[in-house]
């Protein structure tokens, strides 16, 4: 009896340290923020806030620019997840081969991740610059485009530009985690498959992909969470413009809370953005559970 009780306690003890940190340092500010979203708080008159119920929410949900912003967020998130995951996987597969100087190439591939966000934006300002930027120079040199593009400043390329910038910064995270996962595939599996006459494509599809399934779901979830709330790139590179072409929810939230001084409304936007990310993540979650059920009868 005591033994089983103790046995039952073990998982809770294992989770306790993490749970303590989460409750004390993470949930408290989140609840505080949720509370603010039900008030008319202005940042500069914070002490004079009053509860106004759901007014912030109803107001925001009735605005067309909120829904436009939701659309922009979904585009930005989808673009970033697809590009960073694909590039990240591609690089991880390369880095999983044995070759000379592999440690160096691995380290070089992590460089974007070691670059501070502020500097990422500054570098890509130059990369995309229509007048002097290397991208236009190279594309013109290769004959792909005839005249310079105004990447960040045209409505039709602004979103693509910030997705590229974001993906450049994020893909090494995918590479790192997938690489760790690829390294754990027992080499015997490949050897056996080779003996059975499987070609590289078949080996990739039937051994590699299934083995990194969990790691992929982990990373796709993280990428979704990151990009749906990422603020720096869209704010610094395009200020949400041209027009509202890149005004994702995180930018909209910041503008309301800090530029326009309406902290209450900004917080309600943040909570709505929370719900949006949640909806995306729950989708993965359902997939995951189905996965687990299949594994454990």
């Amino acid at each position: 009896m005591t033994y089983t009780l103790r046995g039952r306690m073990i998982p809770y003890l294992l989770l306790a340290p993490a749970a303590v940190i989460m409750v004390l340092v993470i949930f408290y500010p989140m609840v505080y923020s949720a509370q603010i979203s039900f008030t008319d708080a202005q940042l500069l008159r914070f002490s004079q806030r009053e509860y106004i119920g759901l007014e912030n929410y109803t107001r925001m949900l009735n605005r067309s620019d909120f829904w436009t912003s939701v659309g922009r967020t979904l585009t930005y998130t989808a673009g970033t997840v697809v590009i960073s995951y694909t590039v990240g996987l591609f690089v991880a597969v390369i880095l999983n081969q044995n070759f000379r100087m592999r440690w160096l190439v691995r380290t070089l591939m992590m460089i974007p991740w070691a670059t501070p966000w502020l500097v990422v934006t500054l570098i890509w300002f130059v990369m995309f610059n229509p007048q002097i930027g290397p991208i236009n120079q190279v594309l013109k040199g290769l004959g792909i485009i005839e005249s310079g593009r105004t990447w960040l400043y045209s409505s039709d390329t602004a979103m693509l530009s910030i997705v590229i910038t974001t993906s450049w910064r994020l893909f090494p995270a995918v590479t790192l985690i997938l690489l760790a996962s690829l390294q754990s595939i027992p080499s015997e599996l490949y050897e056996a498959a080779e003996v059975d006459g499987a070609n590289p494509r078949q080996r990739f599809l039937h051994i590699t992909l299934p083995s990194i399934r969990t790691a992929s779901i982990t990373m796709i979830t993280l990428l979704t969470i990151w990009s749906s709330k990422l603020f720096t790139i869209a704010w610094t590179l395009t200020q949400g413009g041209p027009g509202d072409a890149t005004r994702v929810l995180s930018v909209y939230t910041y503008q309301e809370a800090f530029t326009n001084n309406r902290l209450g409304r900004g917080s309600s936007l943040a909570m709505l953005s929370f719900v949006l990310s949640l909806a995306l993540v729950v989708t993965y979650f359902v997939l995951l559970r189905r996965d687990e059920k299949r594994v454990e009868p």
Binding site: T150, S154, D156, G240, P242, Q255
Partner: peptide
């Protein structure tokens, strides 16, 4: 001023580049 400047700039970018 801060809010107006953002709105005006974003519109002006559309005029120039779009």
């Amino acid at each position: 001023h801060g809010s107006l400047q953002t709105m005006i700039n974003n519109k002006l970018v559309e005029v120039m580049y779009d």
